[in-house]
Design a protein around this nucleic acid. Sequence first.
DNA 1: TTGCACCGACCGATCGTTCGGTAGCAGTAT
DNA 2: ATACTGCTACCGAACGATCGGTCGGTGCAA
Lengths: 230, 230
Amino acid sequence: MDNFDRRPADPVGDPASIGRMPTVKRDTYTPDSLLSVAVRVFNERGYDGTSMEHLSQAAGISKSSIYHHVRGKEELLRRGISRALDGLFAVLEEPRAREGRAVERLEHVTRRTVEVLMSELPYVTLLLRVRGNTETEIWAMARRREFDQRVAELVKQAAADGDLRSDVDARLATRLLFGMINSIAEWYRPDRAPLNGASGGNSAASTGSATSAQVAEAVIRTAFAGLRTH
Amino acid sequence: MDNFDRRPADPVGDPASIGRMPTVKRDTYTPDSLLSVAVRVFNERGYDGTSMEHLSQAAGISKSSIYHHVRGKEELLRRGISRALDGLFAVLEEPRAREGRAVERLEHVTRRTVEVLMSELPYVTLLLRVRGNTETEIWAMARRREFDQRVAELVKQAAADGDLRSDVDARLATRLLFGMINSIAEWYRPDRAPLNGASGGNSAASTGSATSAQVAEAVIRTAFAGLRTH
DNA sequence: TTGCACCGACCGATCGTTCGGTAGCAGTAT
DNA sequence: ATACTGCTACCGAACGATCGGTCGGTGCAA
């Protein structure tokens, strides 16, 4: 028995492996499964506060072994952020985000953004905390601003349609909306029990998916009640 | 001419010095004036991403000179966070936060919290970004949770009074409220022109103070319209 | 026999911090 | 006036530790 099995808890990020077929991933790390470990540690300690030694301990392999899978620390950051951005931008391409009344497109984008944030929680969390120290981080901030502006256009259009209150500036409203949405990353933990008690009444949902939709619904209800015209 | 005057731009954080009286601060750093520089850099680069070399360059004094004023990097963090917490907790002690109907106490605390966040922006921003790596940061997170819980009690009481909508859990509502409030730290910059165009109609306010109150008002209006019963 | 996943040892650079020292100034005895 | 003293605010050099990353392997399965 050699130095295996001291790997802690998270050998493969998304273990879709069923049997022992050659096409499925083996019991070693892939760039993606290593990424899921790295992103978790990044979120716990902050990117700058995470050393390669921290990552190696969390992954259960040596520091130098990490470089067998990825080019370096910053590539892990870039991959993680990319995954978040891909999920978010995909929302804007959905049919219901492109057709119909602006306020309803906005509501759809809001709901789906919340859902993506929750399903890709670690990756979006990583994106939201970027500060802009490296080139990768500057790129991430630019892409995120781009996403925000796409949504801001929806808000502006909805306000022009008279569907959103006009006594709050569209840009400010967008920022407050995202403030509410993004704050989910600060407290939502998919393992814990659902936080809002009275949503539909019944629905003893303990699955992460159902809880996700419930929280999303509560967020939309609260945010849009504040933004919509009455 | 010796090695002075290459100090960049920010010799004293809050220059209340008027003449040349002996009691007012001199043209050298005090722990507080150095703190204002350090906190600014912390917020630009993140605490872990800021080296003492960065601080020394921003302050215009040598790295070793910093240790003449403070014990070290972590003391700067602690002082900055303390200032933010002092401002926030002081709000809870104000008369209007302690007397009257819960929903009105909540509204007062919300408005004053926004105002403190904006007037002490760099310090509160620093507090909001703490991750929990060091003992100081763990303490900061605990104190912040304490503040949140005090407000959460107000929300719960207001909901029990029937003044807040009951279809959203009190804890969730508190978190969404703070999500909106705290997001201000992400985009508000006191030097820039006000963001919300139509608040009172007139009031050509370019002073930071007036703008602050305006933004605070917009935030309260949006947040409470979403939370209040109709 | 080849190649993949991994390792320990080590690299120069940078980290937060410490140390001995110095220029300039106020106060004071000469 | 001058010289001495003590103090404040600062400095360059250097400390051990740790940083992200490189290198030459090694064991094992195919």
